[in-house]
Design a binder for these strands. Structure first.
Lengths: 107, 107
DNA sequence: TCCTGTGCTACGGTTTTAGTAGCATGCGTT
DNA sequence: AACGCATGCTACTAAAACCGTAGCACAGGA
């Protein structure tokens, strides 16, 4: 179990404390981007999220959800895991990703 | 050494072949996002890139650069590693990330 | 009470990443 | 030629992260 990267602290590959470095560490962990992506259309329960991620180990899923919760990107409500306002703003930057990937596939 | 995720093929967590899933697998590997990020201002030699990433293991750096080259996101020119046109288009989506991270740090 | 679904954990094995050292090649200088 | 130096890259061992199966503890409904 690893420490959740936080802005203003030393993270993997950077001791500057620059927020973007903490973000890149956080998002550069396996399944982190995918989890955010799968929550784009609304809340998912723990098990539904596991299914959506198609085979993720519950150990890792739990690590990621905890990190993302600690970071304020997602939250756990009555209807399951859901993006916070902050998380939705971050996802907005990734929204064009699917379109870009389609173009990428055609290269 | 792992297979480079490609659109149209089975990738980690998805057998649909959807391009965005291959992309999330590719970018979800350690240092992948960071490498792209560090190349944002221009080409870097292998060693300069290693320095920019602050302590990345050369083994992993080489794995990532190979994957990103295979994927057409970066290239190796006379002046070192550089984003391709495709890579720059992808990075454009991440450009707002630094600003978002600043806001995130203030939460 | 029994059944079901929830979030989550234990644990053993595999894969990935880390860290140090160094190789092979090319290039300019002496 | 012989040297120094920088390049991209690899070998090797150890540590960390991840996987996969099973199952726990709790809550709500029948």
């Amino acid at each position: 179990m690893t420490r959740t990267p936080r802005p203003g602290t030393v993270v993997r590959g950077s001791r500057t404390g620059k927020p973007v470095m903490a973000l890149l560490d956080l998002l550069g962990r396996r399944w982190a981007l995918r989890v955010i992506w799968e929550l784009r259309d609304g809340p998912l329960t723990s098990r539904a999220l596991r299914g959506a991620c198609g085979g993720i180990s519950p150990t890792v899923l739990n690590d990621r959800t905890r990190e993302l919760r600690d970071s304020g990107l997602i939250g756990l409500e009555d209807d399951g895991y859901a993006l916070t306002q902050l998380g939705r703003e971050l996802l907005a930057n990734f929204a064009p990703l699917a379109a870009w990937a389609e173009k990428w596939a055609r290269r």
